[in-house]
Structures are given as structure tokens and as C-alpha cells.
Computed example of a mutant assay.
Amino acid sequence: MTKKILIAVSAAVIVTLLAGVWISAEAAAKNPEIFKRFRKPAGAFGQVTSSNTGQLVITKRSGEEVTFLVNESTTFRDRAGNELTSGDLQPGSWVIVLSPRGEQNSLEARLVVVLPDDFDPENVVGARGVIADIDQDASQITLKTRLGEELVINFGPETIFKGQAPDISSLQEGMWARIFSQKLEAGGLMADAVRSTDPVRTMVGEIVEINNDSQTLTILTRRGRDEVTVTLDASTRFRSRDESISNFGDLEQGMSALVITKTEPGREVNRAVLVAAARPEDLPQVDKQVFGELISIEGSALTVKARDGQQYVFVVDENTKFRSRNGKLSDLEDLTEGMILFVAGKEAGNESFQALVVAQLLLPRP
């Protein structure tokens, strides 16, 4: 019974967060630094379309054009690590661009790797995900992608590092990484460029212990099988539905919480970047949450096919909140069949649910 209640409460926490009650656009405007702390690295691979003062435009193999801001922080190199300048870029040149997210989702080029004239794009593999394993002796890592695929990637003297880790010895399991590699003739992959960020973890559960002396919280995660202790400090941000939680002293044992943490190199502790918390009785009712593909739209009714093959109907009304990572999903008209959505709601009768939140967490299928 405890596990069932905890899972239901956790779903409500997720819905509340996605609905923007805690972390809203207004909150982001007041504290834009919050989200910089746990953004994942971005990047692109393609051909130079144009290179002008302050701007680089490339065309990806899919045909999509991507524009990057170029400034004094942008580094240009070839595959051997030799420094170049923006003047070395020519229309049609193949390049790898690594970039962190900038303000208002703009892309700022931090590293531009110019590939040789005889470069074959069919030999390039771009992937991003979590570093699942590191073999220092073999100079290789295992990267687990967002689709669950595990890629073994080799590192050599020409591999270029950007971001948190300056070399392979500084990489940690759990780090997010964006890696562009080339296929080897003998099989396998060799990394050309790597951008990494500190390990980030999001957990949802119940606060079961508070230690005022050490400024730590212990969270019983929503699966009810894992207790995790996190450390809070002056940089930790707090969010609550009614803004009643603004510091460590406002937290209470028994509260439901969503905690985003980072593990910094050389430290074993999980440092909380953000804590969103509420008393269980203050959370909205959630009867069904589904992650899956939008297969049909009929009027205000959405049919979503879950990963287990089951289909669920959610009815959208004026109370439904729409959310997406790029801010382009704001109402029913922005939805298209094939989108991958997270939808949550409460029972509405006739085997349907009233949609509380509709969130696009992944890009549509190509």
C-alpha cells in the first residue's frame, strides 16, 4: 500500500512541475541561472552554409539548417588539434560544432572542428547520452544513448575535449556527453570531439529525514526501493506551489519532493541544484499518466499509445497545461500525430481522462 501511494504522489509531483506551477516562465525570468546548471550539451554536424561576423550557419544531413552564435569564446580547430580561425571556413566544408545552451535557447558555438576535404560523412556517428562505463586502460567508454543503445567509443591523441572534462581521465560514469565519432576500418568508433557536463540526476519521492547540522535531506525515491541523501548549500534553489518554501528550514519530513542534483568531479556527494516540494495533501489528483505516441486527434480528444501498446483517450479543456522543452507547444493546434508525449490526467468517465498536462519531451519521429 505504501508503494502505491508513493507512486501516485510522485506522479502528482511530476504533473505539478510540468504544469509550470513550481518552475514557471516567470520563475525562469527571475532566475535564468537555474536552468543553466543542468542543461545537457548540444551540438550539430553538417556542412557550412554561411560564415559571417558573429554567426555560423550549417546544414545538417537531414536538411535542417542550424544557426550558431560565434564570439571570442569560440575555438576553431582541425582534427589534428591545430588552431584555425573563422576565415578558414568555406561554404560546403564539413564541420562538427559543440555548444552549450545559451539564453533563450540560442546556440553559441564553443568549438568548431573543421574536417578534411576528403572527409566522408557516411563514416560519422553522432550520439549523446550518459556515460555508463569507462575503461581507462583501453582508452574507451560506453555511452548509453537516449534510445537505450550502448555504444563503445575509443579515444585517441587527436580526440578534442570540451566542457567539464578536459581528458578521458576526468570523465565520470553518469556524466552527460555529446560525442562525434568516426567509424574505424577494423570496426568500432573513434571519438573526434567530446563535450561533457557534470552528472545530473532527477529524483522524485518522499523526504524521510532532514539533518539540520549537515544540511542534508534523505529522499525515499518513488520506487520505494532507494534512499538517497543529498547535500544542500547556498546555491540550492527552492520551489513550491505557493512559494512557501524558500530555504532549507521550510522543508518538512513527509513532504513530496522533486530534487535535481549534480555530482561534481572529485566529490562523492550529490549536491542539490533545485528542490521542489509540497505536502501530499496539496498535490493535484492524478489517476493516469502515459508516456507514448500521439496516434490520433479528434476534436479535443487525444489518443495516446503507451509503450506497452495500450491506448488511452485524454480530453483537453481550458484547464489543460501544454509544455515543451522548446516552448513551441502551447495549445491543441500545435499537436500533430506521431509526437512523443507525456500526458497525465484524472478520470472523466467513458474510459477517458481529463488532461491536466500535455508535455512534449522528445522530438517528433522523422
Results as ranks from 00 to 15, higher is better:
V57K: 15
V57I: 15
K60A: 08
K60M: 13
R61H: 11
S62F: 07
S62A: 13
S62N: 09
G63E: 00
G63W: 07
G63P: 04
G63S: 03
G63A: 00
E65Q: 13
E65A: 03
T67P: 00
T67M: 03
T67Q: 06
L69N: 11
L69R: 13
V70C: 09
V70N: 04
N71I: 05
E72K: 15
S73F: 14
T75G: 03
R77I: 12
D78G: 04
D78E: 00
D78Y: 10
A80K: 14
A80T: 10
G81T: 01
G81R: 10
G81C: 05
N82R: 11
N82G: 01
N82D: 01
E83C: 00
E83L: 12
L84H: 04
T85C: 00
T85A: 01
S86L: 03
S86D: 04
D88L: 01
D88W: 02
L89E: 01
P91W: 02
G92N: 05
W94G: 02
W94L: 08
V95D: 05
V95Y: 06
I96W: 12
V97W: 13
L98P: 01
L98Q: 09
S99M: 09
S99Q: 12
R101Y: 12
G102S: 10
Q104Y: 14
N105F: 12
N105I: 06
S106P: 00
L107C: 04
A109G: 09
R110E: 08
R110H: 09
R110I: 00
L111W: 08
V112E: 06
V112G: 02
V113N: 02
V113R: 05
V113K: 04
V113F: 01
V114T: 10
V114H: 07
P116L: 10
P116E: 11
P116Y: 10
D117A: 13
D117G: 01
D117P: 01
D118Y: 15
D118S: 07
F119Y: 15
F119M: 04
P121N: 11
P121W: 09
E122F: 14
E122T: 00
N123M: 10
N123V: 07
V124T: 07
V125K: 12
V125P: 01
A127H: 08
A127Q: 08
A127I: 08
R128E: 13
R128T: 03
V130N: 11
I131F: 07
A132R: 12
A132Y: 11
I134V: 09
D135I: 05
Q136C: 00
Q136P: 01
Q136M: 13
D137S: 13
S139N: 14
S139M: 15
Q140H: 09
Q140C: 02
I141T: 06
T142K: 15
L143A: 05
K144W: 09
K144H: 04
T145L: 06
T145K: 12
T145N: 04
T145G: 13
R146Y: 15
L147S: 14
E149C: 03
E149S: 08
E150V: 00
E150C: 03
E150P: 03
